Deep mutational scan, measured.
Amino acid sequence: MAEQVALSRTQVCGILREELFQGDAFHQSDTHIFIIMGASGDLAKKKIYPTIWWLFRDGLLPENTFIVGYARSRLTVADIRKQSEPFFKATPEEKLKLEDFFARNSYVAGQYDDAASYQRLNSHMNALHLGSQANRLFYLALPPTVYEAVTKNIHESCMSQIGWNRIIVEKPFGRDLQSSDRLSNHISSLFREDQIYRIDHYLGKEMVQNLMVLRFANRIFGPIWNRDNIACVILTFKEPFGTEGRGGYFDEFGIIRDVMQNHLLQMLCLVAMEKPASTNSDDVRDEKVKVLKCISEVQANNVVLGQYVGNPDGEGEATKGYLDDPTVPRGSTTATFAAVVLYVENERWDGVPFILRCGKALNERKAEVRLQFHDVAGDIFHQQCKRNELVIRVQPNEAVYTKMMTKKPGMFFNPEESELDLTYGNRYKNVKLPDAYERLILDVFCGSQMHFVRSDELREAWRIFTPLLHQIELEKPKPIPYIYGSRGPTEADELMKRVGFQYEGTYKWVNP
Rank of each mutant, 00 (worst) to 15 (best):
R246M: 02
F102R: 06
P240V: 08
N165S: 14
I255K: 04
S189W: 07
S184L: 08
T31K: 15
Y118H: 09
D113N: 14
A6V: 15
G222N: 13
L183P: 04
N126P: 05
R192T: 13
A134T: 14
H129S: 13
F66G: 04
P223F: 03
E244S: 13
Q22C: 15
A115R: 15
K152V: 10
A39P: 06
R72Q: 01
Q133T: 10
R246G: 04
D79K: 08
A115K: 14
Q119E: 14
G247M: 06
V213M: 11
K152R: 15
R57I: 05
F191M: 09
L128M: 14
S106L: 12
Y139T: 06
K95Y: 10
D58K: 09
R120C: 14
A116H: 13
D100T: 13
V233S: 02
Q83A: 12
G174Y: 00
R120N: 14
K152L: 14
Y197R: 01
A141C: 09
P172T: 02
H32N: 13
W54P: 02
H201L: 04
Q161V: 12
G247E: 08
Q119P: 12
I167E: 00
Y197S: 01
G254Y: 01
I35T: 10
N226K: 06
K205E: 05
D30N: 13
S106G: 09
I154C: 12
F138T: 07
M207P: 04
F191S: 04
R9D: 15
P240D: 13
G248I: 00
F66W: 10
G59F: 05
L43F: 01
N185I: 09
M125V: 13
V208I: 11
L16Q: 15
L7C: 04
P50D: 01
K95N: 09
V146C: 09
Q209M: 05
N122T: 12
R166I: 02
V108R: 06
V150P: 05
I33W: 08
S106I: 12
D181W: 05
S132A: 14
V169K: 02
R17F: 15
S189V: 08
T151N: 08
D176I: 04
K95H: 13
W54F: 06
S8V: 07
F221Y: 15
I199C: 05
Y249F: 04
S132F: 11
S123K: 15
P92Y: 11
E93Q: 13
K205I: 04
D58M: 14
I224K: 03
F241R: 00
A231P: 00
K45T: 12
L55V: 02
D100V: 11
E156Y: 13
H129N: 15
L98W: 03
G110C: 09
P92I: 12
I67F: 12
G59N: 12
S117F: 09
D42E: 00
K95Q: 12
Q22G: 08
L43I: 05
V77E: 12
W164M: 08
L121S: 00
G14K: 15
A149S: 14
Y139M: 08
I196T: 11
T151H: 09
I48H: 03
D113R: 10
D30I: 11
T151V: 10
L190G: 06
I162E: 15
F56I: 06
E93A: 13
R104M: 13
R81I: 12
L7Q: 15
H124D: 12
L130K: 15
Q119C: 15
I196L: 12
E148D: 11
E244K: 12
P223C: 08
G245L: 10
T76K: 13
R215D: 02
T65A: 09
Y139C: 04
R227L: 07
E156A: 14
T145Q: 06
N64Y: 07
V77Y: 08
G14L: 09
A127D: 15
I48R: 01
V12P: 15
F138L: 05
E99D: 15
V146L: 10
R175M: 11
A127E: 15
G14V: 09
D251G: 05
H129M: 15
L60N: 07
C232A: 14
T151K: 01
E63C: 07
S84C: 13
Q11N: 15
P143S: 07
I80M: 12
T243A: 06
V12M: 15
K171N: 01
H201V: 03
N122R: 14
G254V: 01
F241S: 04
T145N: 12
L235F: 10
S40L: 04
E244L: 13
N64A: 07
R104Y: 09
R227I: 01
N122C: 14
F21V: 14
F87Q: 08
Q133N: 13
I67H: 05
I33N: 06
L7N: 15
N153V: 08
A149W: 11
L203E: 00
F101N: 00
G131K: 13
N135D: 10
V12W: 14
N226E: 07
L177R: 10
N185S: 12
A116T: 15
P92K: 09
T145I: 06
N165D: 10
A115I: 15
S40G: 08
V208F: 04
A116S: 12
V108G: 02
I67K: 04
A44F: 00
Y139Q: 06
L75P: 05
P50N: 06
T91E: 13
G245S: 09
I187E: 02
V12Q: 15
